[in-house]
């Protein structure tokens, strides 16, 4: 037999759950029609070796889009439209390295990926400075992170409009990012 108290708790619990869903969905479903300007001068540290022992304060720029499903969906579309797929395939890599694995040559945090896209990297990653709007670079960076399961499952894209090639970004196994031990440049004389 259920008491009134139990009913009360259950009703309250439901309300609380609703509230949580609404609050979290708030950012998830947000549409940014006039994207805010973002700073693009993140302090990126790519070495574990820090003279003096005291770690440098890492002031990683926060991605404005990582909790927004719409931005992620855009990022997935842009990844193909800007020909990222031509070099990185659907995350498995081709001319460029795989993006769905745990290995990161130039950093896995949003700011590092952002600067990789904007600045380019020495072994073949082109610089897209001036070619892609800053907000779209953040959308792309977020999508790149979703390929190895770094984002919340309810934000990452759930399906592909094209040939089904592998598990959706929503269901992909999360890989713990690791710095590449042998940078590509060091493999070659």
């Amino acid at each position: 037999m259920h008491s009134k108290k139990a009913k009360f708790v259950s009703r309250n619990g439901r309300a609380l759950l609703m509230l949580i869903v609404v609050v979290s969905a708030c950012k998830r479903e947000q549409r940014q029609f006039d994207p805010p300007p973002t700073t693009t001068n993140p302090a990126i540290v790519q070495s574990e070796l820090q003279p003096g022992g005291a770690p440098q304060p890492q002031t990683s720029t926060k991605s404005p889009v990582e909790e927004n499903a719409n931005a992620l969906s855009d990022g997935k579309r842009l990844f193909s439209l800007y020909n990222c797929t031509g070099c990185h395939a659907n995350g498995g890599g081709a001319i460029g390295p795989a993006l769905m694995d745990e290995t990161w040559i130039y950093g896995s945090d949003p700011a590092s990926i952002h600067s990789t896209i904007v600045e380019g990297r020495p072994n073949g990653m082109p610089s897209f400075r001036g070619k892609i709007s800053d907000y779209q670079v953040w959308e792309l960076s977020a999508y790149v992170r979703s390929l190895s399961g770094q984002l919340r499952k309810d934000v990452a894209p759930g399906r592909s409009d094209d040939m089904n090639v592998h598990r959706s970004e929503q269901r992909v196994e999360r890989k713990t990012p690791q710095q590449s031990t042998i940078p590509k440049a060091a493999e070659q004389p």
Partner: peptide, 13 residues
């Protein structure tokens, strides 16, 4: 040679 991820069948074209 490039250490591609076998989980993506579309890798390397």
């Amino acid at each position: 040679a490039a250490g591609l991820d076998p989980r993506d069948p579309t890798g390397a074209l």
